[in-house]
């Protein structure tokens, strides 16, 4: 490993020579651009950066990065990343996934990577639809969604990805959206800095199979009144000139109120570092879907022992106590006898 200063890079240095093949107008382009523009600012090296993915439109992401990359199989990227991240603590491991990949076929791997707190930055592009298989409903699609596989409307209750991640003991959970580069970059940066598993839900528009799914909240004209920015240490308020705010009722419920009617002191102050994830969970339930005011930003960021580091620590302790393993001694660890 080199210890010299990281050479400066530009966005171009992080783009591979492969032609980007998402549909024209896809939200993935703006996420790719946001990240490629951010990476030069993170003080990281291309050769120590790995993008891993499963299957789906989002999973093509690694091919477009000039880093090390692995496009794997459906849903398994967090498991593969666990093997890589725990054996190579010197690497920056990014997992790019979608709502189908992460929450349907890969749900099990996602929740376990989160609870273990393996150092990886998981970006989940949520477009509430299956794109690569051409338009079936996904585990985040709203109930009664009419798609090719549900001509009479879908019956499944959707997952709320932020609630799910919080329930899975995630130590870092955030949400952003593809229409705001600056917000994305801020959240990605925070996620990257987190020592452990960081989960970021990115609302992403699929203009072919689910166009406008988030338009009511992320559209330029709606954003101010429909997105609730979470800022650590600040009262939670939104709307033109902060008209609206979030308060916690005596029974524990969170409610959106007109800020002036309760006064600033009554507003809930966002604390992403609370050990108890209860309030973060309540915030994640504030909106029933992307048509009601929806919090974005960092819901939760708490320090917790990182899995790979703990694994290395156990090895270091064992080696200190017993010395470096010796093969000859190992083979003689049971009873032995000699034959002359």
């Amino acid at each position: 490993m080199t210890t010299t200063a990281v050479p400066p890079t530009t966005r171009k240095d992080w783009a591979s020579d492969q032609e980007v093949r998402w549909c024209p107008g896809c939200g993935d382009y703006s996420i790719l651009a946001a990240l490629q523009m951010l990476l030069p600012d993170l003080g990281v090296r291309r050769e120590n950066t790995v993008f891993l993915s499963g299957i789906g439109c989002a999973a093509r992401f690694p091919y477009y990065m000039s880093t090390y990359g692995l496009h794997s199989i459906h849903g398994r990227a967090p498991a593969i990343a666990t093997g890589l991240a725990t054996t190579r603590p010197d690497l920056d491991v990014w997992v790019v996934t979608g709502d189908g990949d992460a929450l349907s076929i890969g749900g099990n791997h996602l929740i376990h990577a989160l609870r273990r707190n393996v150092r990886m930055t998981i970006l989940m592009f949520n477009n509430q639809i299956y794109g690569l298989t051409k338009g079936q409903y996904s585990p985040t699609s709203e109930v009664a969604k009419v798609t090719k596989s549900t001509p009479f409307g879908s019956l499944d209750t959707p997952f709320n990805p932020v609630s799910l991640a919080l329930g899975a003991e995630a130590s870092f959970v955030a949400r952003t959206h593809d229409m705001d580069r600056q917000h994305m970059q801020g959240v990605f940066r925070r996620a990257h800095e987190h020592d452990g598993a960081a989960f970021v839900e990115v609302y992403q528009n699929c203009n072919v199979f689910n166009d406008g799914a988030f338009e009511k909240i992320t559209g330029r004209e709606h954003r101010e009144s429909m997105l609730i920015p979470l800022v650590h240490g600040q009262p939670i308020r939104f709307g033109p000139e902060g008209t609206w705010g979030v308060v916690q009722q005596p029974d524990g419920r969170l409610e959106i109120v007109e800020a002036s009617t309760v006064g600033d002191a009554a507003l809930l102050v966002h604390d992403e570092s609370r050990e108890d994830p209860g309030l973060a969970f309540a915030l994640s339930r504030l909106s029933r879907g992307p048509y009601e005011p929806t919090p974005i930003g960092v819901f939760r960021a708490v320090p917790r022992a990182e899995y790979g580091a703990e694994m290395s620590r156990q090895i270091a302790v064992a080696q200190e106590r017993r010395g470096l393993g010796d093969l000859k001694t190992l083979l003689r660890s049971g009873a032995t006898w000699s034959v002359e």
């Binding site: 794997s72 498991a79 593969i80 990343a81 093997g83 890589l84 991240a85 190579r88 791997h109």
Partner: peptide
């Protein structure tokens, strides 16, 4: 999967 990830590394 994790074994394969470790092999990649």
């Amino acid at each position: 999967g994790s074994a394969l990830g470790a092999a990649f590394g």
